[in-house]
Write a protein that binds this DNA or RNA. Structure first.
Length: 1016
RNA sequence: GCCCGGGUGGCGGAAUAGGUAGACGCGCAGGACUUAAAAUCCUGUUCCCUUUGCGGGAGUACGGGUUCGAUUCCCGUCCCAGGCACCA
């Protein structure tokens, strides 16, 4: 083929790569690993425009480059497939979201395939696949069964907390919790199950939280803070109001400090780190109590970062939502305060924000300023937020702008206590002096101290007076984890009749079919109307609630209580470790045995005495065991034998099968079990027995998880996507570790990127991961705008479709051009004419290998000049890819091609290595030419060429000669020419003399290999 | 208002340790090949003055500073994009 026929070439090689599974990757301990990841796309129906693949192309180039350099590269792709658009579409059309999603994924995949990416598609994951969300549910279970210990700074099992409560109550623990509660062990023991669960809920990392949520009536769901922009929903722009609601939340605040600290260990842009720091909003200060005069309530506690200004605290302000506000007011003022508070509470965010004038009401009460001992009035105002700090502040109008405005609005005293170090402060103040530098005055024992020291001393004083303590506060709130929607992961949770949540152990809990996808409008998910799914018999499930106080005997978790007197710790522990991971065979059999399918009730992992049976039917005393190959060694034979004797003494019949039998034909095994069951069942039919089983009513959680649930850990699943017994094997997690390079948009700064870090730290605490940051290096690609300077969108009619570009110019040209457009991280407009240049370049490059119609590569020995061109290009391209400077890399290819074209160089020793350099950028064209060179293996398995500096050394340098910094002439000198010699030659030069205009020489600077500057 | 980026030809952009500003590409102008077109190739292209050539001057948002030398470092101002926004 003498002409560059891109469409033929691209089609051909894309097929070939699939056939040979070129990009399939497995763990290989002999090679260093590299994990290159693109941000999880949501497969929308709209298809891609040319802005979308920008990051994919960059990460693909790096992936290919790393492979050529001997790395074992994990480069996967998958879909964040749960979410609102598919569901909204379902509401409108009745089409199941799974179908829409499937169609969209097919389109998306076709588009990606056209562009020649090197993804290992055997690792594809989809969040809406039960085999995937099984593990999302499982991780939720881990959050539910853990609490955060601030002393050891990690998550710990809730059982340990319960043991602590049993032993000494709540003293001696420092835990992340919703509110501080104190009790001793007797109090704990006397509490009933509901009360105990309420306490545990206060500690669980997944817990039920009553909060003010962003309620969007139009979408019928609760939205996260980052999904609300300027008081309306980010998606659709519908109004959002605040509403109290109970729903699941994750205690991300427990990790606030570590989320800030961890930022120092990762290579992300400063701006994203800064956004996360702001979002977490850590501030150091103190909590201080102010005594209330003549009131039942003893004191009001405030949080302040400026305890140094306490002498200037002239009034207090409470949030309208402040707890006990009404009780606190004086009788005369109560009516007015309640009226004000009610009005403030019902106003939307947008109203509150647009307010310029401060509003408020006086409570009729006074506090005592603990430092001045003077009474100060207590007010209520909506400029104080209930959710931050204690919901109350000490107002220091002289040194806080907001307090200053409030004081002016209500004529409250303003007493300055800080002044600039070297000047006086102007009184009366025209504006608050909020600067954090200055010295204290009017401040008793703090007088003369600078702010920083005064803060320290004030806190010390507060602590010795026992009226407060040092305290760190965060803006970050616990993350709401419930959505009242259909198309998301169901919670593996069933509430019993006392509303105590229990985890379902048999996962996945699959999403049931529903009639209508419409939200109910009363704040409940569409799932709530599927009563046959919602209402269940708890006895049909293996549940998990690791509280030993559960009254009902339910599954394995009562082992501690049920252990017989002859309780053998060693054996039971052994059994517990053995049973941890159900085998695939057990999973399969459970599907055939569960829910009375054989007419009797089987339980799984049932403790009997001090053993744990794989499956047991208690009513007919039958135990079914499944053995893997482990059981063939001597030690376990003895163990099995002892166990059999023991259980037979208790009157159980034991039947055993090999796992391999199940794998071969599970139904056959089922039938054999059924025979035994029937032989043991007394004559009345199984149906009758079932009817006789007492029902234990339960109700499923009907909310589903938010979109970010599945995307918070997907990068771990890629490491071992088909694992049925673990979310990913230890082996895979330890090999692939962190994502080395993560490419995606910056719009996920406070969502996905924060949550992923949180989940990673949590899983690290539990010992699943040996790293605690998910993404080592993060690169944010810029946006590509339309040619008209507008955002590229259907609305402006300026969308450029990558399919069209591929059809007209080929994928290699598209890839190269997207990179050539400018720095990856910059936003820049698309320019349709510009692509011609890149297209022309590829044609020129192709013709380097041809002379007219004929293949012209020859085996001649290259000249020094040609070798220099090659090696300088190797050096440049290598540096550019390492530094993600792809636009300059493309330009370097153009330069090399122009130079070699000029020299009419057709030499194999030059062109072959050059081809490898270009392979990551233009994988199809290079593969074709590589084959034409006679290579039988793919170019993408070749070796990256090494730079040989010896071809780059120059023996002379053309010095720019400048007079007073202006370049006037160029003079060539050998590289090793002495400075003195250069000086001499330069000063003797005619042009130089002319420019010196007879002025005396002041100085001459010679920088070897750089420049000469003559100063006159 | 606060925080973080960034301002270089007609356009996208380059200058990877403070050392020849404008690489590479687009666009534009002129030319070669051709009956013609396409394709390809060659030349020029920061601005201003001079213009036949040779030259000269200014110039990296603006104003200062450090330096032999600043697009690069420092201070101030303006503008643009992004983030946060009553978080005490």
């Amino acid at each position: 083929m003498s002409k560059y026929e891109f469409s033929e070439i691209e089609k051909k090689w894309q097929q070939k790569w699939v056939e040979t599974q070129l990009y399939k990757v497995e763990i290989d301990p002999a090679k260093p690993k590299f994990y290159a990841l693109d941000m999880f796309p949501y497969p929308s129906g709209a298809g891609l425009h040319v802005g979308h693949p920008l990051g994919y192309i960059a990460s693909d180039i790096v992936s290919r480059y790393k492979r050529l350099n001997g790395y074992n590269v994990l480069h996967p792709m998958g879909y964040d497939a749960f979410g609102l658009p598919a569901e909204q579409y379902a509401i409108q059309t009745g089409q199941h979201p799974a179908i829409t999603t499937e169609n969209n994924i097919a389109t998306f995949r076709r588009q990606l395939d056209t562009m020649g990416f090197s993804y290992d598609w055997s690792r594809e994951v989809r969040t809406c696949d039960p085999n995937y969300y099984k593990w999302t549910q499982w991780i939720f279970g881990l959050f539910f069964t853990h609490w955060y210990d601030k002393d050891s700074n990690k998550a710990r099992p809730i059982e340990e907390l319960i043991q602590h409560f049993e032993a000494v109550g709540s003293t001696g623990i420092s835990a992340a919790q919703s509110e501080e509660i104190l009790f001793d062990s007797n109090t704990w023991k006397q509490k009933n199950a509901v009360e105990k669960e309420a306490i545990l809920n206060n500690f669980r990392l997944a817990f039920i939280n009553e909060t003010t949520v962003n309620w969007c009536a139009e979408l019928g769901t609760v939205l996260a803070n980052e999904e609300v922009v300027n008081g309306v929903s980010e998606r659709g722009g519908h109004p959002v109001v605040r509403k109290k609601m109970k729903q699941w939340a994750l205690r991300i605040t427990a990790y606030a400090d570590r989320l800030i600290e961890g930022l120092n260990t990762i290579e992300w842009t400063d701006s994203i780190k800064e956004i996360q720091r702001n979002w977490i909003g850590r501030s150091e200060g103190a909590e201080i109590q102010f005594e209330i005069e003549n009131s039942e309530a003893a004191f009001i506690e405030v949080f302040t970062t400026r305890p140094d200004t306490i002498f200037g605290a002239t009034f207090m302000v409470l949030a309208p939502e402040y707890e006990g506000l009404a009780a606190l007011c004086s009788d005369e003022q109560r009516g007015a305060v309640i009226q004000y508070a009610d009005r403030a509470k019902n106003r939307s965010e947008i109203d509150r924000m647009s307010d310029t004038q401060k509003t408020g009401a006086f409570t009729g009460r006074y506090c005592v300023n603990p430092f001045t001992q003077k009474p100060i009035p207590v007010w209520v105002s909506d400029y104080v937020l209930a959710g931050y700090g204690t919901g109350a502040i000490m107002a220091v109008p002289a040194h806080d702008e907001r307090d200053f405005e409030f004081a002016n609005a209500f004529n409250l005293p303003i007493i300055p206590v800080i002044k600039p170090e070297n000047s006086e402060i102007e009184i009366p103040l025209k504006e608050a002096y909020a600067a954090k530098d200055g010295v204290c005055f009017n401040s008793g024992f703090l007088d003369g101290l600078v702010v920083k020291e005064a803060v320290k001393k004030a806190i010390e004083k507060v602590e010795t007076l026992a009226i407060g303590k040092r305290k760190i506060n965060y803006k970050l709130r616990d993350a709401g984890f419930g959505r009242q929607r259909y198309w998301g992961e169901p919670f593996p949770v069933i509430f019993d009749e006392n509303n105590i949540p229990n985890l379902v152990k048999d996962l996945p809990v699959e999403l049931p079919k529903v009639e209508s996808y419409k939200p109910t409008g009363n704040g409940e998910s569409p799932l709530a109307s599927v009563s046959e799914w919602v209402n269940v018999d708890l006895d049909d499930f293996t549940l998990f609630n690791p509280s030993p106080f559960m009254e009902r005997g339910r599954g394995e978790d009562n082992i501690l209580n049920e252990a017989p007197p002859e309780y053998d710790n060693k054996n039971l522990d052994y059994a517990k470790t053995m049973r941890q991971d159900p085998t695939a065979a057990e999973e399969k059999m459970w599907d055939l045995l569960r829910n009375n399918q054989l007419g009797v009730k089987f339980k799984r992992q049932q403790p009997i005495g001090n053993y744990i049976a794989d499956f047991a039917c208690l009513s007919i005393k039958l135990i079914v065991e499944f053995d893997g190959s482990v059981h063939s060694n001597e030690e376990s034979k003895i163990y099995d034998e002892t166990r059999k004797n023991y259980l037979e003494e208790l009157g159980y019949k034991i039947i055993r099968f090999w796992n391999s039998e199940v794998e071969k034909d599970a139904y056959n095994v089922r039938d054999r079990i059924l025979q035994v069951v029937q032989s043991l069942t007394p004559s009345p039919s199984p149906q009758v027995e079932r009817g006789a089983t007492p029902k234990t009513p339960g109700r499923r959680e009907t909310d589903t998880m938010p979109g970010w649930a599945g995307s918070s850990w997907y990068f771990l699943r890629y490491m071992d996507p088909n694992n049925e017994t673990e979310f990913a094997s230890k082996n895979a997690l330890d090999y692939w570790k962190q994502v080395d390079l993560y490419v995606g948009g910056s719009e996920h700064a406070t969502g996905h990127l924060l949550y992923s870090r949180f989940w990673t730290k949590f899983l690290h605490d539990l010992g699943y991961l040996n790293f605690d940051e998910p993404f080592k290096k993060l690169v944010n690609q810029g946006m590509i705008g339309g040619e008209d300077g507008q955002k590229m969108s259907k609305r402006w009619g300026n969308v450029v479709n990558p399919d069209d570009v591929c059809n007209n110019y080929g994928a290699d040209t598209l890839r190269l051009y997207e990179m050539f457009l400018g720095p990856l991280t910059d936003s820049k407009p698309w320019n349709t004419h510009g692509i011609e240049g890149v297209s022309r370049f590829l044609g020129k490059f192709w013709r380097l290998f041809y002379d007219g119609e004929t293949w012209a590569v020859n085996p001649e020995t290259p000249s020094a000049e040609e070798l220099k061109i090659l090696h300088k290009t190797i050096k440049k391209i290598t540096w550019d890819i390492d530094n993600m400077s792809f636009n300059t890399a493309v330009s370097a290819f153009m330069v090399a091609t122009n130079e070699l074209g000029q020299l009419k160089c057709k030499k194999r020793d030059i062109l072959e290595p050059l081809l490898v350099l270009l392979a990551p950028f233009a994988p199809h064209l290079t593969e074709e030419l590589w084959q034409n060179l006679g290579n039988t293996e793919s170019i993408h398995l070749a070796q990256w060429p090494a730079v040989d500096e010896k071809y780059l050394v120059e023996n002379s340098f053309l010095y720019p000669i400048s007079i007073n910094g202006k370049t006037r002439k160029q003079m060539e000198f050998a590289v090793d020419t002495e400075i003195a010699e250069i000086e001499k030659a330069v000063l003797a030069d005619e042009t130089v003399i002319k420019w010196m205009e007879g002025k005396p020489l002041k100085k001459i600077i010679v920088v070897k290999g750089r420049i000469v500057n003559v100063v006159v």
